[in-house]
Design a protein around this nucleic acid. Structure first.
Length: 638
RNA sequence: GCUGGCGUAGCUCAACGGUAGAGCAGCUGAUUUGUAAUCAGCAGGUUGUAGGUUCAAUUCCUAUCGCCAGCUCCA
């Protein structure tokens, strides 16, 4: 038989005899690092795969993203093997790789206790220590169904039934076998550094109508060191958790008396109000008018708007004088009444109404979390009533505004998603198409890259969602722009065109920060609580070195306070280092040190949060620096 | 809502069938201090709530509320 030609990375070609296993071929080469799988013509395969024809061969090293994913998938198998050896009768279902780890869902009547998780980990160590060979075999689907049926693995049978291919692959390690596409590590000994990180219930096929399975989460790394690093990173993220910082910095609290409803403390309220006043400044520039609308409406409003049908289980209701009222979960229906309070002309459009009104949504217990999912909140909400032909111009303005806002908060990476017509929709397909096109058009015109989420739009119109990346490289969906043809219809909104005929306006729902509360939570984690000067609840902390400077410090304090700076005075009889530390821990942007020298020269010595010392200067000079920093609204991220 | 875990002083945690202890924070006093913690003393708790088992419950059991991790949902 003729030899075959194998193209290797870096352009080399090797001639090998057909049937040679990749791993045997590998041993003839000098490879750097650990290769745990390979690619034949771009398709990932196991190392025990035989080379049968001319091909291009690539290596998948353990420390590559693909290699890591294979390692984790194999670790999931190792875990499943451990579970089934320890708890016979437990059925396996699926066990995919996820970001930073993997999970495996099991069918077992009892859930796994922490002690059992420990045992599973130990068993995994043992199985890894045996360095079991992981081998692939293929068989006809029907045969596999029989096999898994015999084994009592009914979930695997269900998965197999849904597979369209006629041949499926199985992986064996020791006496354990699983249905899997692969590839996998060549032997279990490669799996060294792993940890099981959690247990949780999960519905079979992600449907809450299905039975609940027991999910075990875990993660796996090429080395103990990398695993430790990862766990350390998790610890760091915990330190930035806004719930923890919210308490430590005295920003907000929660109480069982009002579940999932934040109490904003004075310092948290400053941030909240600064965020709103920041948006108000933009509204002035972008032509918005702020309105205030009722909190509670007759349920008929919610019937008319369609929210009652779709979301009544998420609304709060109250009954009085034989009328039923619903607490508003959103502002838009209220705004239609301002629109239609008088006869509108095309000259009124676009009409941009902004509302920071408090909203209440009954979020199911179990889904709420800190500030990021609450039952009462407000949004930087606005509705733009415009003529259909104005959509594109409005969009251009909006995109500009969105970008500007996110840049201010140093969310420098922004991902944009355009969601199109869903299965169930209202309005005509033509209107939808026109709307989707104008959204896409404006995005392109503004030079914004976006991805299309087919069929993910709201039932009343297409939308654009904005996802930003924070300092911990986590994505957060913040803003949204939604076109709405339904609400103007339902509330019979009209305007008189230039030609004198009646026409239907379009409504654009939009929020940039989204929920202010949630945005605060995200911002706290993004900045690690070290807010830029303009947002900092306490901007300056004046501290004396000894009691001798008390009077002068008091005067400096009064001056800065009168000038409008949020200032605190620390003239306690404590050592300077102690005071500095407190200010630093409280993440106050500037500490102003006042000792004998400053008193003599009538100056202050500013120290920036983080340790940088500025030269001594007069209060006036310092205030100028502050003003500049405020004007830029900038700040370094920690 | 579902699965599991956890509720002890303001915070972080200890004690574990014999009615609770530390550090930090707080208060008082001493110290007068120059860029991330001076020392000493004092005070602080119906052990989330309600039942039950027991001679005795913070500890064991049940229910309930809340929080946490996921799942489902998110106009």
């Amino acid at each position: 038989m003729n030899n075959i030609h194998v193209k290797l990375p870096e352009g080399k070609t090797a001639e090998v005899s057909p049937g040679l296993k990749i791993q045997d071929f590998m041993s003839t080469l000098e490879l750097n690092g650990t290769v745990i799988a390979a690619k034949i013509d771009g398709l990932p395969v196991d190392l025990d795969r035989s080379l049968s024809m001319d091909c291009t061969l690539d290596w998948i090293p353990l420390n590559s993203p693909e290699g890591l994913s294979i390692l984790r998938h194999s670790t999931a198998h190792l875990m499943a093997q451990a579970v089934q050896s320890l708890f016979p009768g437990t059925q396996v279902t699926i066990g995919p790789t996820i970001e930073d780890g993997f999970y495996y869902d099991f069918k077992r009547d009892k859930s796994f206790t922490p002690e059992e998780i420990g045992k599973i980990e130990a068993q995994m160590q043992k199985l890894a220590g045996l360095d079991l060979k992981v081998t692939r075999e293929e068989m006809p689907k029907e045969e596999a169904i029989k096999l898994f049926h015999q084994m009592g693995e009914e979930y695997k049978v269900a998965i197999l039934t849904d597979i369209s291919e006629e041949t499926v692959s199985l992986y064996r390690q020791g006496n354990w076998v699983d249905l899997c596409r692969g590839p996998h590590v060549p032997s279990t000994g490669i799996i060294q550094a792993f940890k099981l990180t959690g247990v949780a219930g999960a519905y079979w096929r992600g449907d809450e109508k299905n039975e609940m399975l027991q999910r075990i989460y875990g993660t796996s790394f090429p080395s103990q060191e990398l695993l430790r690093e990862h766990l350390h990173l998790l610890e760091e993220a915990k330190k930035r958790d806004h719930r923890r910082l919210g308490r430590e910095l005295d920003l907000f609290s929660f109480h069982p008396i009002a579940p999932a409803s934040p109490f904003l403390h004075p310092k948290g309220t400053i941030i909240y109000n600064e965020l709103i006043s920041h948006m108000r400044q933009l509204y002035l520039r972008f032509g918005y008018q702020e309105v205030i609308t009722p909190q509670i409406f007759d349920v008929n409003l919610w019937r008319q708007s369609g929210h009652y049908d779709h979301f009544k289980e998420n609304m709060f209701f109250t009954h009085i004088e034989d009328r039923e009222f619903g607490v508003k979960p959103m502002n838009c229906p209220g705004h239609t009444f301002i629109y239609s309070a008088k006869k509108r002309s095309y000259r009124d459009l676009p009409l941009r109404l902004a509302d920071f009104g408090r909203l209440h949504r009954y979020e199911k217990s179990g889904v709420t979390a800190g500030l990021t999912r609450v039952r009462t909140f407000s949004q930087d909400d606005a509705h733009i009533f415009c003529a259909p032909e104005q959509i594109e111009a409005e969009m251009t303005d909006l995109l500009k505004m969105f970008r500007e806002v996110y840049e201010t908060f140093q969310f420098n990476k922004m991902q944009v998603k355009l969601s199109t017509r869903p299965e169930h929709f209202i309005g005509s397909p033509e209107t939808w198409e026109r709307a989707e096109n104008s959204l896409a058009q404006s995005l392109k015109k503004s030079g914004i890259d976006y991805q299309v989420n087919e069929g993910d739009g709201a039932f009343y119109g297409p939308k654009i969602d904005f996802v930003v990346t924070d300092a911990m490289r986590r994505g957060w969906q913040l803003g949204t722009i939604q076109l709405d043809f339904s609400m103007p219809e339902r509330f019979d909104l009209t305007y008189v065109t230039a030609a004198g005929s009646e026409a239907r306006p379009v409504m654009i729902h939009r929020a940039i920060l989204g929920s202010i509360e949630r945005f605060m939570g995200i911002l706290i984690e993004h900045t690690a609580g070290a807010f830029p000067l303009w947002l900092a609840p306490v901007q300056l902390k004046i501290m004396t070195v000894t009691d001798k400077q008390k009077v002068y410090a008091q005067k400096v304090y009064e001056d800065l306070k009168t000038a409008g700076w949020r200032t605190e005075l620390d003239d306690r009889n404590e050592k300077l280092g102690y005071k500095i530390r407190e200010a630093q821990v409280a993440k106050v942007p500037y500490a102003l040190i006042i000792g004998d020298r400053e008193m003599r020269d009538q100056t202050v010595s500013p120290r920036r949060r983080g340790g940088e010392n500025l030269r001594s200067m007069s209060v006036k000079d310092f205030a100028d620096i502050l003003k500049l920093e405020i004007a830029r609204k900038s700040g370094e991220l920690q």
